[in-house]
Each structure stands twice: as structure tokens, then as C-alpha cells.
Design a protein around this nucleic acid. Structure first.
Lengths: 163, 163
DNA sequence: ATGTGCATGTAACTGGTTACATGATTCG
DNA sequence: CGAATCATGTAACCAGTTACATGCACAT
């Protein structure tokens, strides 16, 4: 893909992953190239502006897999998780399931922490603060439910997207 | 509160708002003081390290209200919303309701956009990408449901937290 | 001709983290 | 005596945005 293409894809996913500005996207691609993680082919088309098509190298694939597989600390954001989700299935079906399991553990921990905060101080809190906690718990619960159903579905029909 | 206190409170709310490091928290307080939005009282206690208690000024309150009331663009993050939620009820009951309404409109728009993306390209997408979209829709739906129930509850029993 | 979409890029600035530095008190 | 918690701060660095600059193709 070209930098422009990448931007378009990320924009289409909206808030799920968030799209960087060109001011950081292009320099990032240059850096990847510099490190030998991607190669460039210039696509000189007739009656269209020419563009640079980036392709991942073997070294890049390796580095990417490492990134996907790394534990992704307990404070990992939704965006980081979704990004891993999208990338993981290209490389390994087991990896995809691993992502879900890991995320499940993290969200469960976060929910417990929120419950803790909600119960320790109870009455002496503003209405907004109470609602914020409630809201957080609702989101956490949905996410857990979704993760469980997704895992169930995946385990039930193990397709051959295997690596 | 002191800088240390602020950090503790934000930490207790965890991922809901996210807590800045001291390296940005303390300088931020200095800047607020510089702008006359807060004042400082040094609390020299016996057998405890002394600390600086920050209090908001009238100018600060005004600026804060402005921040709360400003439209908070369509790409507002969950964190920004929760922060407004927490702060809004100290100042106005109507403001709290306004926050919820605004957020509802935004999330509804985001969901529509996601649905759009999900339907336009359908089969030609990886499993991870499909799941990501599903996941996003599930979260959006929960948030909408929660916002609706919260609004209903608030409108049903209008407490006297009025300003 | 003018504006919009494609396509790439740089430079200044901003806001944050990480790492460091200090010092008192309390607990084991 | 050493470690943990309370409490404050600075400086180097990094990652990002905003704003700018360029240029071609196509439609109005």
C-alpha cells in the first residue's frame, strides 16, 4: 500500500484505531524503509499522480509478529487491542485466539479495580463521579461478554486460516 | 488538593480518564498558577512532608466551565467525556444532562459510520477486521443503551444539585 | 479559472513520558 | 538500617499535530 492508502484504511475504521496525520505517517514509512522493514516500489501511472507502494520485508514481518505477540501491558488501550486483532489473523489463527484471551484477562482486572474504587468510597462522591464509574463498569461488562462470545464462536469452527 | 492528591484520584479512576505523569502534572499546575487560574497554600505539617494545596480561583472556574461547555468535537475520546461528566455535576445539573445528550449524538454518528464501513466491503476482509468492526459496534450499542438509561433516570428524579 | 481529490513531503511547535534528583517519615 | 510511601520538582527526549509547500488530474 501507499501512505495515502494506509491513511484511507485507518480513517475508515474511525475511532477504533485512530489515524495519524501525514506529518507522522510519511516520516514513519521513511524510518521503516531505513531500517529495512519495508521496501518501496514507485508506481508511475499514466494520467494519475505517481505513488510509492510499500511492501513488508521478511525482517519486517518478523518484527511485526514480535510486536503482536508481546504481552501488551495491563494498561493497553482499546486501539492497541483492535490493531493487534486486525493484524493477528494474517499471521496465525492461534495468535488471534491468544489476543482475545489476553484482552479478557486485562479487562477483567480493570473491572475488578473499578468495582473496588466504586465500593470503597460510596456516598461521598458526586453524581458525575458515580455515573462515570457506572459507565466504566457497563463498558467493561459488554467487552467481557463480547470477548467470551467471540472466543466461543472461534473455538467452535476452527477454520483453516492456520499458519 | 495537592498535585500528589490529584494523581491519586486520577489513578483510582484508572483507564477511565488516564493519569498523567508527575513530569507533566507539576508543570501544568505551575502554568495554571502563572495564569491566575489557581492559588497555592503551603501546608507545613508536623511529622509529614509539607505540601502545596491548590485551589481554583474565580477566573479558573470560569475557564473550566467554558471548557466543559465547549462542543467537544465529534472525535472526542471516552476519557474526555468521562472527565466532563465528573466535572459537570459540580457546576450544573443541566450541564450534566447536556453532556449526556451531546455524547449520545456523537456515539450514534460513530456507530452509523462503522456500520457503513462494515457493509460497503463485506466479504473481502480478514477475520480480524470483521471482528474489530463487530467489536466496535457492540461497544457503541452498549454506550448508547447506557446513555439512554442514564438520561431517563436523571430526568425522572431531578434532584436539587441545581446551580 | 477554480476548486477538489490524489499524492508526497518538511519544519516548527506542543505535549507528553522517562529518567533523574531531593528529602522527610514510617514500617519491618 | 533499608525499603516504601509521601511529596516535589527539572531536563532530555520522543512522538505527535499543525501548518506549510508542491504538483498533477479532473470536473464545473
Amino acid at each position: 500500500m501507499s501512505g495515502y492508502d494506509i491513511n484511507r484504511v485507518l480513517k475508515s475504521l474511525g475511532w477504533l484505531v485512530g489515524n495519524p496525520s501525514f506529518g507522522s505517517l510519511y516520516p514513519a514509512l521513511h524510518a521503516l524503509q531505513e531500517d529495512g522493514l519495508v521496501t518501496v516500489d514507485v508506481d508511475n501511472r499514466e494520467r494519475k499522480p505517481s505513488r510509492k507502494i510499500y511492501s513488508i520485508t521478511d525482517a519486517g514481518t518478523q518484527t511485526l509478529r514480535q510486536w503482536i505477540d508481546q504481552p501488551a501491558g495491563p494498561h493497553a488501550s482499546t486501539k492497541a487491542f483492535v490493531m493487534r486483532l486486525i493484524l493477528a489473523d494474517s499471521y496465525s489463527y492461534a495468535g488471534l485466539i491468544g489476543q482475545l484471551h489476553q484482552r479478557r484477562a486485562q479487562v477483567a482486572a480493570q473491572r475488578t479495580a473499578l468495582e473496588q474504587t466504586a465500593t470503597t468510597q460510596d456516598g461521598k462522591r458526586g453524581l458525575g463521579q458515580q455515573m462515570a464509574l457506572e459507565y466504566g463498569l457497563a463498558l467493561a461488562n459488554t467487552e467481557l461478554a463480547w470477548l467470551d462470545s467471540a472466543l466461543e464462536r472461534l473455538l467452535k469452527r476452527p477454520l483453516a486460516t492456520e499458519d
